[in-house]
Simulated assay, not measured.
Amino acid sequence: METLKYNLSILQDKAKERTVKTQSIEYDIETLIKKLDRNIIKLDPEYQRRHRWDNKTSSKLIESLILNIPIPTVYISQDIDVDSETEDDEFRYSVIDGQQRLTAIKNFLKNLYPLEGLETLSELNGCFYKDLPPFLTRRLEERSIKCLRIDSTLDAQVKLDIFERLNSGSVKLEAQELRNAVYGGRFNNLLKDLSKNINFRKLLQINNETPKDNNKVKKMEDVEITLRFFALTNNRYAQFKKSKDRGFSNFLDDTMSEFNNLDVQALNALKVDFENTMEYIVLNYGGEIFSKYKTEEDNEDEFHGAKSKLLLQSKFNIAVFDAFAIGIHDALQEGVDIRDKKRALLDLFFDKEFYNSVSGSYLDTNKLKYRIEATKKVLGCRGVLL
């Protein structure tokens, strides 16, 4: 009985401590956009995913707003007391749930996309915000959005918990989107910064003029590939041991956790290392070096016999990235001259075992280690296990 009372006391304290205090508030769209523009509300806190709605989905939301169809409540956290004096560029609130909706509204009002795919108001298809008749712009600007403001006393972890609970029934978070939420920190910020590197985007076949249109960017796959680079270079790939309970995703999680503890000087060194490697690869191997090829026999004639040739399968393959990016980086770290090794790397695709290592279940431990080791051997690295 004493134990029960003790447990009830603990439960009571926890319930009191973790109870979320909220306040309902409504903003008309015009006011809401002004708050976003003035940095009063932060639209993309660290735990949020990148904007993933296409124009058609965004247009449906705008149509719903014009027709006064109810939309879900936006959740915002109060980060700074509304009555306190702060600098002009300091956020008072951050969006916990509703980022996709608010971004769609803001982008339309900024004339960044035309309406498309509308059925009820099909006459508006092709129209930008500036093209709408005055009565519709007034209706849109005066439409109110219901917001639920969460008390400022909550710590960051509680906000993350709320974010995960609110998003549990929506579009599934990709692996790196979840890491972005859970492992926020300086290394996480560095990964997002490096994923925008011009040379890196060129190698990933991401158009530097329109990166937001690329699915790798929308789903933060570019950030995850940046993380893979740090997780596997400097012989770290040898640490990966797949088990029943822990796979490669867990290995990347561990890397996030470990590298978030690095100091500023160490992170700056990682930044320079990554940027120099990507620049070297583009200059010496071209922008399509992470392509995947398969072999096909070329029937010449009865005197010369058949000869195999390489056929392009894709201009970017993540397993090929593992092999070539890590191999090239580690060779450069050892001071090996690898400027004329492009042909040798492409010839690896004639090796059936190497081709298999970049195909199928490419996260298999043996496949991962084989493709990196095979690449390092071709490049002339020391300490190769093969």
Rank of each mutant, 00 (worst) to 15 (best):
D81P: 02
N7S: 08
I225D: 06
S168Y: 08
L194T: 07
W53F: 02
E63Q: 12
V74M: 00
K352I: 08
A266L: 13
K35Y: 09
T103K: 03
I29Q: 00
C381M: 11
F229E: 06
L346H: 11
L252V: 09
V264I: 12
Q12H: 12
I40T: 13
R92S: 09
E119C: 07
Q333C: 11
S144P: 02
K294Q: 12
D364N: 15
A323L: 06
E116P: 04
K130A: 14
T153I: 11
R101G: 00
L118Y: 01
N111V: 06
K42T: 03
L115N: 01
K216C: 00
L386P: 08
D340G: 07
L121K: 01
N197Y: 11
L227K: 01
L61S: 03
K367G: 04
G380D: 09
T22D: 03
D340I: 05
N250V: 07
R382F: 05
A181E: 00
P45H: 02
E141I: 03
D151G: 06
T233R: 12
L67Y: 05
L121C: 09
K216F: 09
K192M: 04
R201A: 02
S359N: 11
T120C: 09
I338Y: 07
I66L: 15
A319Q: 05
L102S: 01
L11N: 12
K56A: 14
F251L: 07
F248V: 08
R246T: 12
M256H: 03
F91Q: 03
A181L: 08
L102Q: 01
K341A: 09
N180A: 10
T31Q: 14
A344F: 07
D151F: 01
K212C: 00
D322M: 03
S308E: 15
D83N: 13
D347C: 11
M278Q: 10
Y370S: 08
N207Q: 04
N268K: 13
E123P: 06
T86R: 13
F251Y: 15
S144K: 14
E353C: 01
D37P: 04
T57I: 07
L109M: 15
N188R: 12
D322T: 04
V384H: 06
I76M: 13
K110Q: 15
L8G: 13
G169M: 08
Q48P: 06
F163G: 02
I33G: 05
R201Y: 05
N167G: 00
N268E: 14
L112V: 02
I96K: 06
S291K: 05
F187C: 05
F290G: 01
Y27K: 08
L112A: 04
N366H: 08
Q48A: 09
K146E: 11
I225H: 04
M220I: 00
D88W: 10
L363G: 02
I281L: 08
D337Y: 09
P134M: 12
